[in-house]
């Protein structure tokens, strides 16, 4: 099919606009992170750093235990993801064998839970964390993050399990596998793409969580990266170290950007599979 030149030009323009809108804010940040201080505070703005510098990254790592924040975020998010999957997978296996009406009622209930605004739960959770002596403990974040991730994880896994041919499951039952055996040896391996999608969605959401991280960590060594960055600001609003902040922003977003570029299909599939079938 031949396209008219005008239509082709318009399409290219639209594609460029979409890409610029999506990436420009992040690119601007990345440029600021490696700009010499004098070029950061220059008006009109200098876009391309010359020469690029690592001074902000160095200053940031000297002033703040930033590597520690990253490790904390990774550990908390990974633990929350594993817990969410461990809890969601059996539930999904159970739901995919239920009569449709009961199943839809469960899925709708989970959807409603996932729409609960976290702010509503913040103070009671804070009380619970204090009561159990979990302030600054990773557990104070892992449990809620896993719970927040569970509804979508169940949705994604259940959709994946339901696509498996029923005979596979029946054959496994005849071979004497119980529900857990079926889940671990048959359903999860066969629905691995759904498992990956559910895991990625939970990991990204946990990595990005801010409200609880801000409220349940008071020691620098316990902070995750989102809460840590909030503490990077300078002595006053007018002394914000923008170079260091940009360096922090770039360092904390690299992992999720990588995940998006590697797993875009899975993530989109998981997100829309969850939302559109409902």
């Amino acid at each position: 099919m031949r396209r008219r030149p005008l239509a082709t030009a318009l399409l290219s323009l639209a594609v460029s606009l979409a890409a610029a809108w999506s990436l420009l804010p992040a690119v601007w940040q990345a440029l600021t992170a490696v700009k010499p201080e004098a070029q950061i505070t220059s008006s009109p703005a200098v876009w391309i750093p010359s020469p690029p510098t690592a001074e902000h990254v160095r200053a940031l790592l000297e002033r703040k235990p930033f590597a520690r924040y990253l490790v904390n975020s990774a550990a908390v998010s990974l633990a929350a993801t594993l817990l969410a999957l461990a809890v969601a997978a059996p539930a999904a296996a159970s739901l995919c064998r239920m009569p449709p009406r009961a199943r839809n009622r469960w899925l709708l209930g989970l959807l409603l839970v996932s729409l609960f605004p976290p702010i509503l739960l913040l103070f009671p959770l804070y009380e619970g964390v204090r009561l159990l002596g979990l302030m600054n403990s990773p557990l104070a974040l892992v449990l809620p993050y896993a719970a927040f991730g569970v509804p979508l994880a169940v949705w994604v896994l259940e959709a994946g399990f339901r696509e498996l041919p029923r005979e596979v499951e029946e054959a496994a039952t005849l071979d004497g596998l119980g529900p857990l055996g079926r889940l671990l040896r048959v359903q999860l391996p066969l629905a691995a793409p759904s498992l990956v999608a559910a895991g990625l969605l939970t990991f990204i959401a946990s990595w990005n969580e801010f409200l609880l991280a801000l409220s349940f960590t008071t020691r620098d060594a316990s902070r995750t990266v989102t809460a840590g960055i909030a503490s990077v600001s300078g002595a006053s609003l007018y002394e914000v170290p923008w170079g260091q902040l940009s360096a922090a922003i770039v360092l904390s977003t690299i992992p999720v950007v990588l995940i998006v570029f590697l797993f875009e299909r899975r993530i989109s599939g998981g997100l829309t599979g969850g939302a559109v079938k409902g």
């Binding site: 979409a18 890409a19 999506s22 990436l23 804010p25 992040a26 990204i204 990595w207 990005n208 801010f210 801000l214 990266v225 989102t226 960055i229 909030a230 922090a248 922003i249 904390s252 977003t253 999720v256 950007v257 995940i259 998006v260 570029f261 875009e264 993530i267 989109s268």
Partner: peptide
């Protein structure tokens, strides 16, 4: 993939 990037970045950081 490019247009999905903003969705995946931490809101507080961005």
């Amino acid at each position: 993939a490019v247009v999905l990037v903003p969705w995946a970045l931490p809101t507080s950081v961005m």
